[in-house]
Design a protein around this nucleic acid. Structure first.
Lengths: 118, 118
DNA sequence: CTGCGACCTGGTGCGCGCTCCAGGTCAAGC
DNA sequence: GCTTGACCTGGAGCGCGCACCAGGTCGCAG
């Protein structure tokens, strides 16, 4: 018995709401999650770990579409080349975000410097 | 005559749509923009430069509320201390974004590395 | 057996950041 | 004077990423 986790505990551990966990599952971003005899979800440690990865990417600003494609590609057996190509595309997006954020920080620092010295 | 810019040209130069320019003005993020005798907007070079700053911050992920407060604070005469405090808060947010994006990139690179080597 | 709380499904609502539309006005070119 | 096209206002619509709700089920504590 691989240490199953109730929905409430999964929510607590991942920092997501029950609604969001169900939403992600519907969208194919996580799971499918196993059910007990009564139909309630039982998350595995692997599920929780995967949710951590997804949350990390989402926090970086990736959209639901990208997360779904990410999940689908990593779950697929075939198409390693496709996988890597997709991952590299996402990587480019994130690096672009890094550039945008650095540019904004530079603007902000100029202003802080200017007003800091009156 | 300080080289006035028609709305279409302003849109073209800033990369924003006419609707977005009007929306930003309504929200107090830019402007108020001067009008000609017929009521049409005429942007100044300063307006366009400011829109550039706003766009830069927006691209970094700042929300409309923050942009409005940013604009209001920089337009105000008084409260330099408030200004700097606010700017520092925004700066913290952006640095947090930097951290999130770097974390996601690290996850991504792990996957790329893993699948790149099969 | 009863109560209770955690969880289920299906559906609706919401805030953000635009985007689009209808119906009208203005100014320049022919 | 007439057409054309850029622009105006007010308001409705939309996609995303959830949040919320009603009405029902399950299983354990007492």
């Amino acid at each position: 018995m691989p240490h199953l986790i109730a929905p409430g505990d999964a929510a607590h551990r991942t920092g997501l709401s029950l609604d969001t966990l169900r939403y992600y599952e519907r969208e194919g971003i996580i799971g499918p999650i196993r059910r007990d005899t009564g139909g309630r979800r039982r998350y595995t440690e692997d599920d929780v770990a995967w949710i951590g990865i997804v949350t990390c990417l989402r926090d970086a600003g990736l959209g639901i579409d990208d997360l779904r494609r990410f999940t689908a590609l990593l779950a697929a057996e075939n198409g390693h080349a496709d996988r890597v190509a997709f991952l590299r595309r996402i990587r480019e997006e994130l690096q672009e975000r890094l550039r945008s954020t650095r540019a904004a920080l530079s603007v902000l620092d100029d202003k802080i410097d200017y007003y800091g010295r009156h």
